[in-house]
Design a protein around this nucleic acid. Sequence first.
DNA 1: ATCCTGAGTCCGAACTTCCTACTCAGGGGT
DNA 2: ACCCCTGAGTAGGAAGTTCGGACTCAGGAT
Lengths: 156, 156
Amino acid sequence: MPHMTALLGKDLNCSIARSLEVLGEKWTLLIVREAFRGRTRFSEFTDSLGIARDILANRLGTLVEYGVLSRRPYREEGEREREEYVLTPAGRDLLPVMAAFAAWGDRHRPSESSPTVLYENAGSGELAELRFTTAEGRILDLADVGTRPGPGTDPV
Amino acid sequence: MPHMTALLGKDLNCSIARSLEVLGEKWTLLIVREAFRGRTRFSEFTDSLGIARDILANRLGTLVEYGVLSRRPYREEGEREREEYVLTPAGRDLLPVMAAFAAWGDRHRPSESSPTVLYENAGSGELAELRFTTAEGRILDLADVGTRPGPGTDPV
DNA sequence: ATCCTGAGTCCGAACTTCCTACTCAGGGGT
DNA sequence: ACCCCTGAGTAGGAAGTTCGGACTCAGGAT
């Protein structure tokens, strides 16, 4: 069972491609979304997503393997011990990915009930949004943001 | 050829799921990444990604269909007219998605050559980063950001 | 001892992706 | 006019994934 993700597009020098190696398979990001919604158990994931159990077992395995989720034993009142899956710090660092997808979907594929999730400063309850900012915190308009080659670029 | 994307997880009330319907298939986000890198032509995409031509044709078609790319005719010196694929405004709005994946990959799956792309204010060249901010522009630490149900949540 | 349940595994059918070969629309060369 | 060339596909079969249902296994409950 070598598991061997397919090395998409040979370009492992790209951090987007490296992220997609972990997160880019069907269902993976929806599993992560459910984890952010507080689901932890195998049956919670199958019930909320309708994913086949073998695929779920496989995806949970790779997410654990890559440190997005961790397995943790739990025991329910009068049940035997089982494992649940909780977001690690690396998993919680996917919040911007979730927020970016959600913002794009809200803007460009709206449904009747548009934003289902908002972000806030957990301490104060102030609303928060994912934006590009300068180092000093000035919010930039997305249209003004450009890219430039970083230090890790191949010097070809 | 009904094209019928699989309605992942029945939950179309989720903007993440709706985004993934367009963007979640294998190769799609790498094609978008290449589009941000300035590629526009069929052969540029096959050359840089190594994707099979039939899959590329299919993905470009759905990206056009959903308004992420648009087809535009071009004519090279002494060649016949062909079509190229350029990001629409909706496509350019995927920059936060790209940046979020890139940041996660840089942090959690680093390679020797870590950040290959940086973001900047296109006018001034000041560095920019994708962060959660309050309405007034105070940058929040990711660990302090939480979620709350938005107005579009099912009132169940 | 037997039943029950959550969490899997197994397996064959259905669907995707991959790879190679073919097509098609012009433009250029002769 | 005819043939060759190239970019951009399409076609078709092999290989790889996903799906859904049946099976397993480890306890605890009865």
